[in-house]
């Protein structure tokens, strides 16, 4: 059966991509942020995952408000970077793990999750940035991907509890997949930020640091919180953090936090990362 190699949570702030595109990786402002990912990058490189399941939200790039899937699953052979207004970024196309994706589609629907199944899909910074933070800027990505898209833009958004349950289902889908491939699950978004309204610019570094410290060791509170709790504590766009719960719900109750970092703010966002491994 396939192996759940690790769970990784990370921000996907578009300014991270812009900094890379502008050659600011090693600038005084950004170097501490990017350097914080090096230990996790080294660990992932050494453990050679075959597939990355990336849970993220589209930011009004691939889906317009005419049709918003609460949950969508990519089964494509290949994904191109989306045009977010500035033209598609010069990152390699992403190769889909379509065999596992179709297996996951079967498992999801059988388990009473009913995603929109996407055969042609451009992917925006929500997927691009985590891939770049984990795998750098290779000529070709070293893993195939399975995108899971969660609506966090138009209300109602799904509940944190539903995200956790989706993680549990993903775990069963990995366990029942008859290959020896190694899978890393990446929950993305957050941490605290709010981009709209008079509370724009809200960040909550104390809450962010607590999240980074506890999402591995003691996630019960985050699993129990309401959507409104997330918005109040982490800001309206900070509610993206519910997508980390898919990753956490996929893991064992007991996990080791291999690496972590927190940096604030990246642009207008608290930016953080954890790399989790099952205790086994």
């Amino acid at each position: 059966m396939a192996e759940l190699l690790a769970g990784l949570g990370t921000s996907h702030v578009p300014s991270i991509a812009a900094a890379l595109d502008k050659g600011l990786r090693d600038s005084d402002e950004w170097k501490p942020f990017f350097d914080g990912y090096i230990p996790a990058q080294d660990w992932v490189r050494a453990h050679k995952p075959d597939i990355a399941v990336v849970i993220f939200n589209d930011h009004g790039n691939s889906f317009f408000l005419d049709r918003i899937p609460t949950l969508a699953l990519g089964v494509a052979e290949e994904y191109q970077p989306a045009d977010e207004g500035w033209g598609p970024r010069a990152v390699p196309n992403f190769i889909g793990a379509s065999d596992f994706a179709w297996h996951l589609a079967d498992q999801m629907v059988a388990g009473h999750f009913d995603p929109m199944i996407c055969r042609e899909l451009d992917v925006d910074h929500g997927l691009q940035v985590p891939m770049e933070l984990v795998f750098g800027r290779p000529a070709a990505w070293p893993v195939k991907i399975v995108p899971i898209l969660v609506n966090t833009i138009q209300y109602p958004i799904p509940t944190p509890q539903r995200m956790w349950e989706l993680g549990q289902l993903l775990r069963r889908a990995i366990a029942s997949y008859p290959t020896d491939e190694k899978i890393i699950v990446m929950g993305t978004g957050g941490l605290s930020h709010q981009l709209q309204g008079a509370r724009a610019g809200y960040i909550n570094p104390d809450a962010d640091r607590a999240w980074i410290a506890k999402i591995g060791a003691d996630p019960a509170r985050y699993r129990a919180m309401t959507r409104e709790d997330y918005i109040a504590e982490f800001g309206s766009e900070g509610a993206e953090l519910i997508m980390w719960l898919v990753m956490r719900g996929c893991m064992d109750d007991s996990v080791r936090t291999l690496h972590q970092q927190y940096f604030a703010p990246a642009s207008m966002t608290g930016a953080g990362m954890v790399l989790l491994e099952n205790m086994g």
């Binding site: 209300y155 309204g197 509370r199």
Partner: peptide, 15 residues
């Protein structure tokens, strides 16, 4: 009216 002060969510009315 925002359910959470100064925090416009894209709910039915706003959408």
């Amino acid at each position: 009216t925002d359910r959470i002060p100064d925090t416009p969510l894209l709910d039915r009315a706003r959408s």
